[in-house]
Each structure stands twice: as C-alpha cells, then as structure tokens.
Simulated scan of single mutants.
Amino acid sequence: MQFIYLDNNATTQIDPRVLSTMLPFLKENFANPSSTHYFGTTVLEAIISARTQVADLIGADNKEIIFTSNATEAINIALKGVAENYSEKGKHIITVSTEHKAVLDTCKNLETKGYEVTYLPVQKSGLIDLDELKKSLRSDTILVSVMYVNNETGVIQPIKEIASLAHEIGALFMTDATQATGKIPINVDDIGIDLLSLSGHKMYASKGIGALYIRKGINLSAYTHGGGHENGLRSGTLNVPSIVALGKACEVAEQEMKQDAERIISLRNELECELLKIPDTFVNGSTENRIYNVSNICFKGCDASVMIGRMRNVAVSNGSACTSAVIEPSHVLAAMGLSNDNAFTSLRFSLGKFNTEAEIKTAIKTISELTKMMLGYA
C-alpha cells in the first residue's frame, strides 16, 4: 500500500541533507559547546554557524536569535518576557482568536496574573479587520501578537500593516511564524517584526528544536535560570544536533524556497480543484491571502474523523495536531463562523516538498471514492 503524507503542517519528514548534517554531532562531535577545550570550541563554532543560518533566512543578526526546544517554548518566552519586563508601561496585550493554542493558552495564563488580553475576531475569510485592531489599541498596550500563517487554513494575515499600527502607539509586535518560515520570504526589518517564533520540525529539520528572534534593544525576563545560556534567557545545555539541523534546514529553504513553492502550489491546486468537484464541498478561509501548501475543505455530510480513520493510506488532519485529541470543533473554524457540523466535516490538507503528482492523483481517487460511499452515491 502506498502511504501518502499530506499533513506537513503537523510535522515534516526530515530532509536527508539535514539528517546527514546533524549525525556527526550525535557521534564524534558530541562535546558540550560550553566547554573551553578544543572539542568544545569546535562544536561552538557549529552553533554560531547555525545561528547565522537561521538569522539569514529572516533577515536578522545572529545575535538576535536564541534557540529553544520548539515554537511553543519560544512563544512562552516572548509573551511572558514582554509581559513581565514592560508591565510598567501597561498590561494590555492584543492577539487573535484564531491563534495557535501556544499563544492563546499563554495569554489565558497571563490573564490570571492581572494582564488584560483582547482577542480580536476574524472575518469569514479568516483575516482580521484592521479597523478592529485600531479600535483595540490603547496607550497601555504593550504587545500585539498575530500569527503570520494560520496552521489550519493557511490564511496569511497583513503582518506588515499590523506591525505598523502596533508601533504607532509604541507597542511591540510579535508573530508566530511557525507555518511561514522557510516557505515564504521573511525580512524582519522590512516587515517591522520585533519578536518571531519558529520551529524546526515544520521545515524539514528534527523535532525538539525551535528559535526565537528578539530584535536588538528589546529586553525580556529570563525564562529559565542556571548558567546564563542563550543571552541569559534560557539556561541549559544546548541541543547541538538539532541546532545544526535547523541551521541546515534554513540554508536549504533559502536556496530552494522559490522552486518548492512553484511545484507545491501546482500540486495543491490540482488536489483542491478535483476535490471541489465532490458535491457540497467548499474551501474554508481566504483563497487569495493563503499560503501555497494548504487547503482546508469542508465535505458536508462526511464526518472528518471517520474519513481520517478509513483512509489507511492517506494522512490528513481535521485540526491542529497539538489539540487533535480534543473532541470539539476547531476553534479556528468556529471563529470564522462555521457551524459545528461544518467544522466537524472539514479536513486540512498540507503538502510538502516530498509530495509527488502520483501521490496527489491517488489521494484524489481515494477521497472521492470514500466521500461517495459515505454520502450514499456509490
């Protein structure tokens, strides 16, 4: 049976070039980068190189990058660090109702500590209304945090405009760029990003590694203590193999992003076009402001969980992998105005650079036959 993986927003297959880069640091180059002997300093050089590769991908300086275990940790460091260090200016934070749970749950935690959080609604398209943002900004707003690319729908928010509005009232701007980094060009200076989180396993590197960009001059409170690693924000021995893997993945992405995008969007469009021929199907979210590898489709009358269970050879998702064990409608689709019935019958297809046209054709055939059977057309 041919296994077809169309759940790349949940995690990606590690690139063979990335794997070969990290393997030596699991074997012969195993020294602690904090050690002062030759073997340690050699590993430290690899860390510095990887930090530069990450920084280059987003147009930053390598001193503005700190390594984390994942994007969730990076988000926690940023949100809690800003909240604590800028509380004298104010305790108001603005985010969006369709953010990843890493942002939403951290904001809920901050609310228990006296911070006020505004959760902006989204339109049917999944986009925020910039006028709503303007109305929500206040003199005591210290941070605006808006996801770059939504993990469930692929909708791209107007990040540059949002950053500009935040800066007009002296607030910082943060973005969870987990689903954007490595897929589309990002330049933190051009856009006006102050804080940015990313994750290795979403861009063909290993699991257990992420990074946080912190613009020079922004001060955050330490997240963990015990050695002063990562500019004093996150103490602990570095995950060297995964760090060099992330660096290599960023280097590959910078070189191959354009050609990957051209090929993947062609496959995504073929998949989407054919699946929308199934009766009572429609795309959730904006199709104009959307990243090229994602299609979130509602199959009215077909339980998404049942479809996933019956497709033994095709891997897709009915929501975020981080909350997929929770039997409730997607908070993203609900915020966009979908009924529970339509949310429960929606599937996310997220393609990656290792997908082939043959796989897409097989997936189309499998899903079309399954929906016909479930809807009683077969």
Rank of each mutant, 00 (worst) to 15 (best):
A10F: 01
I14G: 00
T21R: 10
F25Q: 00
F25N: 04
E28N: 09
N29I: 01
F30I: 12
F30W: 12
F30A: 14
S35Y: 14
H37F: 11
T42L: 12
V43W: 03
I48R: 15
S49W: 15
R51I: 02
L57K: 09
I58R: 02
I58V: 10
T72R: 14
E73W: 07
I75H: 09
L79P: 02
K80Y: 03
K80H: 05
V82H: 01
S87E: 11
S87K: 14
G90C: 02
I94E: 02
T98F: 13
H100W: 08
D105A: 11
T106V: 15
N109D: 09
T112Y: 04
Y115T: 07
E116T: 14
V117L: 13
V117P: 08
Y119G: 10
I128A: 13
K135Y: 07
R138G: 06
S139M: 08
S139I: 10
V146M: 00
M147T: 14
N150E: 11
T153R: 03
K160R: 11
H167P: 13
E168R: 14
I169C: 15
A171Y: 12
D176V: 05
I184Y: 08
V188R: 12
S197F: 02
S199F: 08
H201S: 02
Y204M: 02
S206T: 06
S221A: 08
A222Y: 12
G227C: 05
N231S: 13
L233S: 00
R234Q: 04
G236R: 10
G236V: 07
L238M: 15
A245P: 04
E251Q: 14
Q259M: 14
E274V: 08
K277Y: 04
F282S: 07
F299V: 06
D303A: 07
V306H: 12
G309W: 10
M311N: 03
N313T: 09
V316S: 13
T323W: 01
I327M: 12
E328K: 15
E328A: 15
H331D: 01
A334F: 05
D341T: 11
N342I: 06
L351Y: 02
F354M: 06
T356A: 06
E357Y: 03
A358W: 00
E359Q: 11
K361R: 08
E369Q: 03
T371D: 02
